[in-house]
Design a binder for these strands. Sequence first.
RNA 1: GGCCUCAUCGUCUAGUGGUUAGGACAUAUCCUUCUCAAGGAUGGAACCGGAGUUCGAUUCUCCGUGGGGCUACCA
Length: 506
Amino acid sequence: MIRTRFAPSPTGFLHIGGLKTALFAYLFAKKSDGKFILRIEDTDQNRYVEGGMEQIIWSLKWAGINYDEGPDVGGEYKPYIQSERREIYQKYINELLDKGFAYRCFCTNERLEEMRRKQEENKMPPKYDKHCLSLSKEEIDQKVANGEKYVIRMKAPDNEWIKFNDLIKGKIEFNTKELDDQVLIKSDGLPTYHFAVVVDDHLMNISHVIRADEWVSSTPKHILLYKYFDWKEPEYAHVPPILAPGGKKKLSKREGSVSVNEFVNLGYLPEGMINYLVLLGWNPGTTEEIFTMEELIEKFDLSKCQKAGAVFDIKRLEWVNGQHIRKMDTMIFRTKLMDYIIQDINKRANNESFIKFAIIEQERINKLSEYKQDFNIIYNFDESYDGELILNEKMGADKVSAELAFNESIKLIESIDFEKLNSEVIKTDNSKLIELKKSYEEFIKNKFLDLVKNLNMKNGQILWPVRYALTGTDKSPTIFELVWILGKEESVRRLNIGIKKIEVLG
RNA sequence: GGCCUCAUCGUCUAGUGGUUAGGACAUAUCCUUCUCAAGGAUGGAACCGGAGUUCGAUUCUCCGUGGGGCUACCA
């Protein structure tokens, strides 16, 4: 049974680099019908952030990465929060102490700092000098009895090669002489990452440790621990980081958005986010690029993962997200848009009108937050625009053509049976809404084009002034869409405003 | 500094001991057009450098260079 885990520290919002790592571990497990586990690594009391765990859980759920076991869902290997596993680590550190693979160290911070300072002076690598390794049993017992604080360190062998085969990076080897006598248990009695991760991964039966790239260097320590315990080592796969644009620095807060919830606020969809992230380091071996989570589970493969870090490119994210918006079911999109803009919904955006709005936006925007401009045009119309802009030399639209355009358009719009049109929108099945929209767009379009033709004018002479009067701006959906959604009364009202504006122009 | 590791268009990447080095985003141009998007078409754009192996290296080896990681009683 394949079992992978995501083991974040609850130090705040989930970073998209963390999401990427979680995703890779999730996809790998699910591909082989394995289990994916969430474990919270909160052994550092100093970095504890209130609500950090909830943030992580929320973000994973938003992304659609569902874990089979975890702090809030339980599981047969519980608890899944390391601070609740104190006694377990205590038991296993005693085993190491008994076997002689670990020892107590009573060195003070001052001594350690002094030691490192000297090492640096002499251009020596900073490593613990094993000062406390030579303590006799009596000395140790005496110090413990005196209540002296101590940590427990692992004993690193002198000159042994530790080799492992990383599923992404390939063969990696280290010599143990480079290894420090790593602290396993801190003076507060809690384990360090290195100890807790090995004990928990073993106890939780993790078969594949898929984690961030930064852990490569400490993997030999972990492997050593497995050897000391005589446990079976897991397979390892280290996922490359996401880098900030420009320089080859790791993506960080200074470079813009990094936390999952920021992307949620910007209106990216989980489908788009996941799809973009998986492409940052993995490819299917074909030219396909847009995938659902189900497809990813089927196709994902660690052997097709990139070894190097990938630069974050928001433009590409936007494109991927836009692709998902466009292929989404109209009703699902509408619901998502509605949820996103709930604070903006006003009484003008009634049900039938909002259905139309969502259909129009689905083919125009790349992320939910882009709804705003069109929304304001339609529901928060600003009458105070500059009337001069109705006229447009380039379009051939002058005062005469604009006046003609407005008067004729009003007649045209009044001839349309909007009641029938609107009732059909409500009645129509979601899957056919886009078709319906296209047919009405076509219908209204033909009326306007006929008008232009009959007046013997150019499109721009008539259509530019009308679109401008309808929107008060130079960027908007097409006139046909606007008339469709605004309806008779509002369209005519806006055209009349336009008439007043050009009347006063010289 | 030491150790580990990585390196193909601006970006994400495919690929091979001999290819016109492929795709996507971005960019440019064009089409569509009432504007902005969206959509369609086309173009420009890359094998980090130096040795070696070889008939031939982007590909294999070594050495540089550059990037990243680790070097904590943080994870």
